[in-house]
Design a protein around this nucleic acid. Sequence first.
DNA 1: CGCTTTTGACCGGCGC
DNA 2: GCGCCGGTCAAAAGCG
Length: 269
Amino acid sequence: MKGILSLITTSGDEMVEELNRMKSENKKLSDVLTIVTRNYNDLMQTRKRKAVDPGYYNHSCRYYSCCDETSAGTLPKMIKSNVSRVYVRIDPSDTSLVVKDGYGWRKYGQKVTRDNPSPRAYYKCSFTPSLPCQEKVQRSLNDPSLVVATYEGHHHHHHPSQANVSAVSPPGGATGTSTTAARITGERRGSTESLDFLDPLICSKIQKAIAATESSEMQQFLVEKMASSLTRNPAFMAALATAITGGILDEVISEENKDVVSNSRGFSV
DNA sequence: CGCTTTTGACCGGCGC
DNA sequence: GCGCCGGTCAAAAGCG
């Protein structure tokens, strides 16, 4: 279904349109997610250049257990293994592109990228400039009140991997200063594991499992796994946010899956 | 004075 | 080979 691809790759409006169509066709949530997952993998196969952006893979050892050697070996060589993404709510009128996470960052560049009218700022660690740790900050395409901070390197990875921690503690035990930071990753409380949808084997197993069961518990489990992995894609997250804001999913997602919805909505805290 | 920010130039990867 | 694009460099300016 080509249209589903637009849920991931294009604007929120298109996603709303597509979801409306699927809703009118009385498609089940499992069907929707199966299709989205399949096309998400197709997307990753075809968008070679975009895939160079670590964010599209977002292999975060800090938040997700997906950095094993096996999967890393199948990915393009430029993919960095330690990448995490943090979404921070800011004042929409604030154009500083600064994420107050308690660390010292030195800005070394700013660039306007093609996919987003707002500039992207590049930071290196000001304490240990020689270490390969860096931060990229860019305003969210769909939500001007959100900025996306992408961390690369090993700087922060000793921090505990706790879900829904809004502020991180800097090295040396100083207190983090970000009181507005809001984690919007797809984690569920108490669970940091997720499946790698880039792995065809895992994807295949999930789809078979969906086909094999209509159990609400199983569906909830699978849906959570999908949400966790899919929400690592910023384009998908942006489109999903738009759709959810419009209430499209309310009638699609059953009562048992409210956890997933709240996860997806959690980023707007 | 030292550090940070700004910003245009430059570089390298990738697609055509 | 060429052009596009994201990422980085580095000189100048800003700031405490």
